[in-house]
Design a protein around this nucleic acid. Structure first.
Lengths: 344, 344
DNA sequence: CTGAAAGCGCTTACAG
DNA sequence: CTGAAAGCGCTTACAG
């Protein structure tokens, strides 16, 4: 390639100083209109590339926001990420994405990278077991953090998520209202706040109806479609098989429905199945899936919005923002659903 | 926060020069073992954060590799990205991800950002209509590019993808062998190399069997699960409804199967359906989906590997690396599949 | 084995 | 309205 064009190249060619060129390229009114145009024209034709590292070294603003979640491929995060992306794009911030797969050292190394790159902010759904000190490390080094979906006790930073306990209680109440007394819970774990809160909502709704919680009715662990599929066997082996299941997430529910169908048990006919999150697929699934709309898009927008506000100087606020979820009833939980009937 | 610790802080405290500290932190054998340990200890206890912008400005290596695809939420890209992530992690490169959603200006602005940040390399699945000049711009500014999944004519850079024409011909031949003469193609577009190649494989296999291509049998456009679902209505409205369908992707096939089931047409019983990509879900779907394993993981590994090799000084090679796909036959294409029989 | 000095490409007071 | 100069925090020849 040819000799690299930099600010000083343009300045020399035009007989100006780098200060003037720098100001002009950023549209400063300090530079006369004509001069500004000449400079921009030269920058354009010479193929000048702005060196953000140099600028960032000087200004200690990088224009980078890091985003770290369990798994970007999970549609639950997908919708949050779209909202964040949208918000950051509008503010011309670059979006650096990372999966931590609940591996603390992977998350920590991402955090270190962000510190080293001088990122302006961080949005994260913290990995299981994230110590508050990791969050403090970022905050103490001028890297403001906003949490999504999960909370870290004692971190002292704002956190944005759906009201999982309330949302889960909505589904379970719905099933009870449909006449079910035996309702299983499939998936989730005690190790995340999401898992704990959703399980709590499940227990609360049972208790409210005077139904005793039975530990064997919670089949733990599943968080992916595949794990939901695998959980079907375990569910079907339960001694008094419940007539309804609520799942930790839509993904788990969709996998479970595949597993049940394969075993000859028809979701929406022989058994009521509900999910959680209301991902796009829920409405077109077969049968269409009853679930809880979890406000992912709002979570993303508000978290990004709050972070951007802090970047523009707003004070940090420790707050827990709970988005109110809504029940979406579809055929998977209504056992009279007239599913089309294949005969063998 | 306290005063920021930098190289010179450590140097002062220890009565050494910044040169020695810099070398020690990067494990240079030029620095005596004891000195090195003292320096590292001090860095650790003082909470020193390495400033990569400064280093990068000096060395013009950033440790960043940009990755830009149509949509990271699509499991097809998901598997490629996992492989790339894996490869880059091993080489301690930071992974900056971006969706372009086939929007050229979004892709271009990502490219500009990577140039400005001094990224070391770029892996992209180019947006529809990407001009070769965009790729040249990167290459001419010391930003090596590797293409995945799609090709850009005249770009002169290496490209890694499955052999889509061959793979699609495998599925169609399979359906013909199963006795089908009327096979529809659902989804894809003429605008991507992937779409063109898969459509070509479809035509080739028909021609080979002496079956004339009928334009109305290609229902174009669908590339997502939802679009596949929507395409079901269009397919069912065809005058002489074909007895089999191949889809542009598994996602389209899975959506189509939802749509067909809802209309009372049973995939794997009343109609044969095939996908393409062999994503995780294909094997557990109901019915399990016949598809083509497309080597996504190999595509990712090889593309990242080739890029990393260039970063370590290997010469650029314009080459097209075609991964050989494999047919995976499952029940969705075998009409005698004993699907469990819900009655209303 | 260690140090003094220059320089990566910007921006920012400060002068004029 | 424009310029000269310092400095962001590193690394890299070059000396010793």
């Amino acid at each position: 390639m040819a000799q690299k064009v930099k600010l000083s190249t343009i300045a020399e060619r035009l007989g100006l100083s780098t200060a003037t060129v720098s100001l002009a390229l950023r549209d400063s009114p300090l530079v006369a209109e004509v001069t500004r145009e000449r400079i921009k024209e030269e920058a354009r034709t010479s193929g000048y590339i702005y060196n953000r590292r140099a600028a960032s070294l000087r200004t200690s603003k990088s224009g980078i926001v890091g985003v770290c979640v369990h798994d970007i491929m999970n549609p639950f995060y997908g919708e949050i990420l779209k909202a964040i992306e949208d918000e950051l794009d509008r503010h011309r911030q670059t979006f650096v994405l990372c999966n931590h797969y609940d591996d603390l050292s992977k998350q920590r190394s991402f955090l270190d990278t962000m510190l080293q790159l001088g990122a302006d902010g961080l949005i994260m759904s913290p990995a299981i077991g994230t110590p508050a000190s990791d969050i403090r490390l970022a905050e103490d080094n001028d890297l403001p953090v906003a949490l999504i979906a999960r909370t870290v006790e004692g971190s002292g930073v704002a956190s944005f998520r759906g009201d999982d306990a309330y949302g889960m209680s909505l589904v379970v109440r719905h099933l009870i209202a449909e006449g079910h007394r035996a309702v299983a819970l499939v998936g989730g774990t005690d190790q995340t706040s999401t898992g704990r809160d959703r399980a709590q909502g499940y227990r609360d709704a049972l208790a409210e109806a005077g139904i005793a919680f039975r530990p064997e009715w919670w089949i733990r662990g599943a968080r992916s479609r595949h794990q939901g599929f695998d959980a079907a066997a375990e569910f079907l082996a339960l001694p008094d098989r419940p007539s309804a299941v609520v799942c930790f997430s839509d993904l788990v529910a969709l996998g479970l429905m595949y597993g049940l169908s394969r075993a000859g048990v028809r979701p929406g006919v022989d058994i009521a199945v509900c999910g959680y999150d209301d991902i796009d697929e829920a409405a077109i699934a077969m049968p269409p899936l009853t679930t809880v709309a979890n406000g992912q898009s709002e979570v993303g927008h508000r978290a990004a919005g709050a972070l951007l506000a802090r970047l523009s100087g707003a004070p940090a606020a420790e707050e827990l923002v709970l988005i109110r979820p809504e029940l979406r009833v579809r055929q998977s939980s209504l056992l009279d659903f007239g599913i089309v009937n294949p005969s063998p």
